[in-house]
Design a protein around this nucleic acid. Structure first.
Length: 282
DNA sequence: GCCTCATCGAAATCAAAGTG
DNA sequence: CACTTTGATTTCGATGAGGC
């Protein structure tokens, strides 16, 4: 079983290809591949799946695709794919048009666009940054350099990185690894298949967005978005994002003072009458 | 006056790739 | 390293207000 990862570059830069076998060994690493050479290479390599770091087409309308918006909800931010109206006129998006050609060449070689289900024999869109976040379980730490961070993730997944000498090769390897994992059933592709979906190497996205920080002792993200104010006033039903509604922290303190005073008065009266205090307070 | 929260807007952030 | 493209998100600081 082989997966071919393609890191797409600007029109004249050339692409980086990495082929991984089922042992996750980079059996083929090719750089500076032009679109004219790609068809022959695909025919020669005969991968079981092709994973491409680029969208297959412009968004049908609007300025982004559903798959990108859904990923953004998990804190995985990708450059949005605009509609042709915007994309075709900005030179910045030329690399996306190279991606379209790559999908077209793949289709001509018998690899239709992946839409849903088993990915064998298809060409799928992947996103190295997203794959890295999914495999690491978190976003890269603040200030982390991209290449070493992704190298570490590849190594932790059993991919030898000796040949992956450039950032583009590392990304192509991440694409291929995502393809392999997708073949093995580890895949999740949010979005609208008609627009194109980004395939991630996970069974599903996490309920909570990815965080850059490792694990925090008090994970506020596990708390509900809104809850009732904790001031303790039975008449207060205010919903708040934090513990108290505005000003109700002072209200809580006031109530605690009051109950502390009555507590003191109660224990004094118990002592005066010669009655015992509750066992748990002894 | 003190403390905290809500809110608003501005600014930074981040993804990809290339150029200077 | 700085700058460019987009846009959602995040993170600031300033401001106003509540309750004591």
């Amino acid at each position: 079983m082989h997966a071919l990862g393609i890191d797409v570059g600007a029109p004249r830069k050339g692409m980086d290809l990495v082929q991984l076998d089922d042992a996750r060994e980079p059996v083929r690493v090719v750089s500076k591949v032009g679109i004219d050479r790609l068809g022959l290479l695909i025919g020669e390599l005969q991968p079981d799946v092709i994973a491409i770091d680029a969208p297959p087409a412009w968004a049908p309308n609007g300025s982004s695709r559903l798959t990108e918006r859904l990923l953004a909800q998990c804190n995985i931010h990708a450059f949005n794919t605009p509609s042709a109206r915007t994309g075709a006129v900005h030179p910045f998006y030329a690399w996306m048009e190279v991606g379209f050609e790559v999908f077209a060449v793949a289709a001509a070689r018998g690899y239709p666009r992946y839409r849903a289900g088993a990915p064998r024999g298809t060409a799928m869109e992947v996103f190295p940054h997203g794959s890295a976040a999914v495999l690491a379980g978190c976003l890269p730490p603040r200030g982390a350099k991209k290449k070493p961070w992704r190298e570490r993730i590849l190594a932790s997944q059993g991919v030898p990185i000796a040949e992956l000498t450039t950032a583009d090769r590392v990304d192509a390897a991440l694409c291929a690894l995502t393809g392999l994992l997708a073949l093995e059933g580890k895949r999740f592709a949010p979005g609208d298949p008609k627009e194109g979906v980004i395939v991630l190497p996970a069974a599903s996205l996490p309920a909570r967005p990815f965080r850059a920080a490792p694990a925090e002792a008090h994970d506020e993200a596990t708390l509900p978005l809104f809850r009732e104010c904790a001031c303790g006033d039975p008449a207060c039903h205010e919903l708040t994002r934090t513990e108290f509604a505005p000003g109700h922290d002072a209200k809580r303190k006031s109530r605690l003072w009051a109950s502390a005073r009555t507590g003191v008065l109660a224990t004094e009266e118990l002592r005066r009458r010669g009655w015992v205090i509750p066992p748990e307070m002894r």
